[in-house]
Design a protein around this nucleic acid. Structure first.
Length: 595
RNA sequence: GGGGGUGUAGUUCAGUUUGGUUAGAACGCUUGCCUGUCACGCAAGAGGUCGCGAGUUCGAGUCUCGUCACUCCCGCCA
């Protein structure tokens, strides 16, 4: 039988007692982290959310309490009353915050006995993902995961305080709603009272926050769950959290300034780190040109270099024919890496093949010659031009990818990141932010033969580009911006279209007919006609941001109850089959549910 | 949908290349001893469907095929 709490009242946490508390009578409550039974005296590390304090059971103080303490095992939940005692000099533990003191226990309550845990509650012992998720409540007792969750709370408070003091209003938007016109698959929820009809869980509160602008709540925010039924990744969960904001009567500069302040405030509160603002900004075109990706990791150099013009007439047909077909030949000079082995080069070739590059050409620059399978194809003039453009010096190795622009940029951009990792140019302690602006408004979907919004169809184009709608839509730049941190997109937003006429033109360009538009989000179009302020916003992925702040490499480690890669929860065993009575009530034909 | 990695004691792993007697280690757990430890120490002990299924073989943790789970990536998705 367990002891009850009774009149026992916790006076302190396990992190706060110090030398100054000596002789005080205190009551601590918590879990047993370790026990060290010396036959006579028993030491126990008592753990709670805040920390660990050593408690001591000594038969000299109480024979009966010491006897009872012999039963104690790891993870038992205890309440102890006793006196704070100083630890004599060499018995102090400088590794513990509370290492100068200990509690001499006079009264012991065992609130709860615990089975031997499925894994040790200790960061030093790695455990499989399944087991961690199945016993998530034990996993959350471990220091690192606990710290991540507490840091997330700090971030959450920083966000609320900052946005509140900047005039933002926290407004909840519905989870049971209608499909939002963004790319991802929706999670559907059947409606019992409307048989055969479904709600969609929101992929983001996009339409609602625009409606709130039209309502006049000129600064809105929400820390809000969003849902996307797509395959998972280390940085993607089917339900994730956004810091969602929308503002009226502002342009992108103001939004970016406020967003920077928010990030600054989060870093200050969570890490105590002062970030310098404004963050640097790149246009999309510049990011693609220099880094090959729209989310460049700015912690290191190794920039990409376009050499298409130099090799366009080269005897090396792989290069020249690509250029003639409108492709791109770009290169990275890995300074001082001419010592790369054949094996290393092969690994890098395989690496770029993942991103569809057909090959990875290379040249090692030696003192007197170029060592390379392709060097012989270049004239002396071409070699000289390459050497100058790429700043080639003896000891360098330069990698080339030649392909359609999309593939060249992606493959070489990813290779750049890989080289950064391999050459250890990337530090966890550096936080390199950059804005990426002037995204294309559309891209072209080859399979569906039509234009698609890169962001979403409510993103405003730059004013000077509007007349390209009828001539060259792919040249239109949008008023969208992403915030990139260490090569990871942590947020993005845009100025929205607040003009019905322009909105209709854009929808037409996207091939969305009036009828279809009306059916999908007619309510927004109608609202735009009811007095819409100029407005725009931004949303940050809180999980990704916390992942970087906590130096984790998976967002699962900053989410209390995440899902596996198959989108299941080993703890609750969700998703699970529904009973046929339940399905019948929802008017879902049971016979069509696969066994 | 596709490619890679992993799966052996409660946990983390070794053993698989080259099939061969009773499958090991560390931590954890149990019991005993121990009054100053702090990942206490010492001694003894328990603990195995080698993910699952089939096949090859005199013989499979080890080879083959299938399958499941976890994970990383491509596709997909901001």
């Amino acid at each position: 039988m367990s002891d009850l709490l009774g009149k026992m009242k916790r006076t302190h946490t396990c992190s706060e007692l110090r030398d100054t508390n000596i002789e005080q009578e205190v009551v601590l409550m918590g879990w047993v982290q370790h026990r060290r039974d010396h036959g006579g005296v028993i030491f126990i590390d008592l753990r709670d959310r805040q920390g660990i304090t050593q408690i001591v059971f000594n038969p000299v103080i109480s024979e009966s309490v010491h006897g009872k303490a012999q039963e104690i095992r790891n993870e038992y939940v205890l309440g102890v009353r006793g006196k704070v005692a100083s630890r004599p000099g060499d018995m102090r533990n400088s590794n513990m915050e509370t290492g100068d003191i200990e509690i001499l226990v006079e009264e012991l309550k065992i609130f709860s006995r615990a089975k031997t845990p499925a894994f040790q509650i200790d960061d030093r012992v790695e455990t499989s993902e399944t087991l961690r998720l199945q016993y998530r409540y034990l996993d959350l007792r471990r220091p690192q995961l606990k710290k991540n969750i507490l840091d997330r709370h700090k971030a959450s408070m920083a966000i609320r305080n900052y946005l509140d003091s900047n005039g933002f209003i926290d407004i909840e938007t519905p989870f049971l709603t209608k499909s939002t016109p963004e790319g991802a698959r929706d999670y559907l929820v059947p409606s019992r009272v409307n048989p055969g009809n479904f709600y969609a869980l929101p992929q983001s509160p996009q339409l609602f926050k625009q409606l709130l602008m039209i309502s006049g709540f000129d600064r809105y925010y929400q820390i809000v769950k969003c849902f996307r039924d797509e395959d998972l990744r280390a940085d993607r969960q089917p339900e994730f959290t956004q810091i969602d904001m929308e503002l009226s009567f502002v342009n992108e500069d103001e939004i970016m300034e406020i967003a920077q302040g928010l990030i600054q405030s989060i870093f200050k509160q969570v890490l105590g780190k002062d970030l310098t603002t404004p963050f640097p900004a790149l246009t999309y075109d510049e990011a693609m040109e220099r880094f090959g990706l729209d989310r460049p990791d700015m912690r290191f150099g190794l920039e990409l270099c376009n050499v298409s013009d130099i090799v366009k007439d080269a005897n090396f047909k792989v290069f020249s024919s690509v250029v003639k077909k409108g492709g791109l030949v770009k290169a990275i000079n890995a300074k001082g890496c001419a010592s790369f082995t054949r094996k290393q080069i092969d690994e890098l070739t395989d690496f770029t093949a993942v991103y569809k590059a057909k090959g990875l050409a290379w040249i090692k620059i030696k003192e007197d010659q170029w060592q390379s399978p392709i060097a012989k194809f270049f004239t002396d003039d071409e070699k000289q031009a390459l050497a100058q453009r790429l700043d080639l010096e003896p000891g360098d190795i330069v990698f080339f990818v030649a392909d359609q622009p999309k593939i060249t940029n992606e493959a070489l951009g990813q290779l750049r990141n890989e080289l950064g990792r391999r050459l250890e140019l990337i530090s966890d302690d550096v936080f390199a932010f950059t804005w990426v602006t002037h995204f294309p408004l559309f891209d072209y979907d080859e399979t569906e033969k039509r234009y698609q919004s890169l962001h979403h169809p409510f993103t405003a184009p730059h004013e000077e580009d509007i007349d390209k709608l009828s001539t060259n839509p792919l040249d239109i730049k949008s008023r969208a911006y992403d915030l990139v941190l260490n090569g990871i997109e942590i947020g993005g937003g845009s100025i929205r279209i607040h003009d019905t006429y322009l909105q209709e033109k854009i929808l037409k360009c996207l091939g969305i007919e009036a009828e279809e538009a009306h059916e999908k989000f007619g309510f927004l179009l109608e609202a735009l006609e009811s007095g819409a302020p100029p407005h725009g916003g931004i949303a940050f992925g809180l999980d990704r941001l916390m992942m970087i702040l906590c130096r984790e490499d998976s967002i699962r480690n900053v989410i209390a109850f995440p899902k596996t890669q198959k989108a299941t929860c080993p703890l609750t065993e969700a998703p699970s089959r529904a009973g046929s009575a339940q399905l019948q009530e929802l008017a879902i034909k049971v016979s069509r549910i696969p066994e």
